[in-house]
Design a protein around this nucleic acid. Structure first.
Length: 476
RNA sequence: CGGGGCGUGGCUCAGUCUGGUUUAGAGCGCUGCCUUCGGGAGGCAGAGGUCGCCGGUUCGAAUCCGGCCGCCCCGACCA
């Protein structure tokens, strides 16, 4: 175990807090519930952002920016929306030293302002679809903050689209959910369960909400992204209408979808171990760290000379050379393991003499993760190894998800199953049954699976006829 | 909002019960010099604290009393 780091088995929540802070991803800000995202954590977020932004643009979306302040009255235009969000709003009532005529809310999400603007911009079916995304901060006055997982202010992207038909909007909602799932799998090495939210967990104001749920290292679920079918609810509330080719006037069909800095928490909790973070190579700020080893000044010059050549050879990767003078190699090994750098290159006098380096895999501690690689073809070996690590992380997470997912037949089995993982079981659709599970086991319905068996079954709670299988789990 | 914990150098804490031998300490970190460096190095010399805030008791308060503020953790709300 790393020095001063609580083990995951001992106290997972504490381990999480310590890793986030010791690895310098984030730190507590002076205001309760707020955090400072430190450079290393922000670099990780930038990579998340880059990978998603490419996917959004490849599917025809454009970025824009809408304001932080929203007139309080906007929230009230959609009944469910205001009911859902008013408990967690931060409201500005004074500006420039004067009481404002109308209070401004600090956006908790932007459907309302964006709806207002879309009403102005959209006239005709020729203007559709509108496919806009924004990268922004939002504020929700949460009762129980936790670093990255639930902070008062957080960073995210929120996509907002408007369409001429219901089918088109529904296709958009599914397309974005698929993009999130593909991103999580291929970039973050996180396998997810896709599904629809139950009515009680649905976004305030949506017709349907879809989610990707990931399993953390303690078996709990984390909603990692969402995609909402808003139907015509917001279009009606904000008068977003368009004229059809036939001359009629119709309300648009809108969607919204988002992924936040919470996802950083998922990366930490899915892959990390008792030494600290393990970052997936595709998103890691440093994919490779070079630790030079020397005794004398002669050796130092020699080794650093070789390290420069390695740096040049690995120009296609994100590489960090740790040439800090006063620290020993052993300290640096542990330090970069805490920070989750996927691959370490060790170069000492012995390696220089043998024209090789030692590669050490973060995901495979100890001797079996180390291998000597000759200078020539170093880039090829590193590229291959990073790919291997990326695949190994995904496979490990996939196996963990599979091992900790059960299919209880009885209510008692369900309650014990959710203590350490996901439970897939029949659900009759009744909110009472859902509430009972929550009250007695603290687990909630994370989603209703897309892939449903053809036959029906008996509700795991009440035994009534059930048409759908639900994923139950305790959630963050 | 309920439950628990905590406010003492940058960090983790001891000292508080039983007020005065403490000129407020330790470990880690930090600064300088020297020796080290293949899995968390060592020596020497330094810098750094109005003990969360306000008031009270007392000859004397980090320590006792009253009030206030803040933070963390666990639950209810949620990306």
């Amino acid at each position: 175990m790393a020095k001063g780091l609580t083990s995951r088995a001992e106290d997972f929540a504490r381990w999480y807090n310590e890793v986030v802070q010791q690895a310098e991803l984030a730190d507590h800000a002076p205001v309760r519930g707020c955090m400072v995202i430190r450079p290393y954590g922000y670099a990780l977020w930038e990579n998340v952002r880059g990978a998603l932004d490419r996917r959004f643009k490849d599917t025809g979306h454009e970025n824009a920016y809408f304001p932080l302040f929203i007139p309080a009255s906007f929230l009230e235009k959609e009944a469910e929306h205001v009911e859902g969000f008013s408990p967690e709003l931060a409201v500005v009532t004074i500006g420039g030293g004067k009481e404002l005529e109308e209070p401004l809310v600090v956006r908790p999400t932007s459907e309302t302002v964006i709806g207002h603007m879309y009403a102005k911009w959209i006239q005709s079916y020729r203007n559709l679809p509108v496919l806009i995304n924004q990268w922004a901060n939002v504020v929700r006055w949460e009762l129980r903050p936790r670093l990255f997982l639930r902070t008062t202010e957080f960073l995210w992207q929120e996509g907002h689209t408007a369409h001429a038909t219901q089918e088109e909007a529904e296709a958009e909602v599914q397309r974005m959910l698929d993009i999130y799932a593909e991103f999580a799998r291929n970039e973050a090495a996180i396998p997810v369960v896709k599904g629809r939210k139950s009515e009680s967990e649905r976004f305030a104001g949506a017709v349907a909400s879809y989610t990707i749920e990931a399993m953390m290292g303690d078996g709990r679920a984390l909603q990692s992204a969402t995609s909402h079918d808003l139907g015509q609810n917001f279009a009606r509330a904000f008068d977003i209408t368009y004229q059809t080719a036939e001359g009629g006037l119709e309300h648009c069909w809108t969607t919204s979808w988002g992924l936040s800095t919470r996802f950083i928490g998922a990366i930490v909790m899915v892959h990390g171990d008792d030494q600290g973070l393990i970052l997936p190579p595709r998103l890691a700020p440093h994919q490779v760290v070079i630790v030079p080893i020397w005794k004398s000044d002669d050796e130092k010059a020699q080794v650093l000379g070789a390290a420069d050549k390695v740096l040049a050879a690995l120009a296609d990767f994100r590489v960090k050379l740790d040439d800090r003078d006063q620290l020993t190699p052993g300290f640096k090994f542990n330090d970069w393991e805490l920070r989750g750098v996927p691959l370490r290159v060790e170069i000492g006098p012995r390696d220089v003499a043998a024209e090789q380096v030692v590669l050490a895999r973060r995901d495979m501690p100890g001797r079996q993760g180390k291998a000597a690689v000759p200078f020539n073809d170093l880039a090829g070996a590193v590229g291959e190894m990073l790919g291997t690590i990326q695949a190994a992380l995904l496979e490990r997470a996939r196996a963990f998800l599979e091992q900790n997912t059960s299919e209880p037949e009885t209510y008692d089995d369900l309650c014990s199953a959710v203590a350490g993982g996901f439970a897939v079981a029949w659900w009759c659709g009744s909110a009472d049954c859902e509430a009972k599970v929550k009250a007695e086991s603290t687990a909630t319905i994370r989603c209703l699976l897309f892939d449903q068996p053809a036959e029906s079954g008996a509700c795991v709670v009440c035994g009534a006829r059930a048409a759908e299988r639900a994923v139950f789990a305790r959630a963050y």
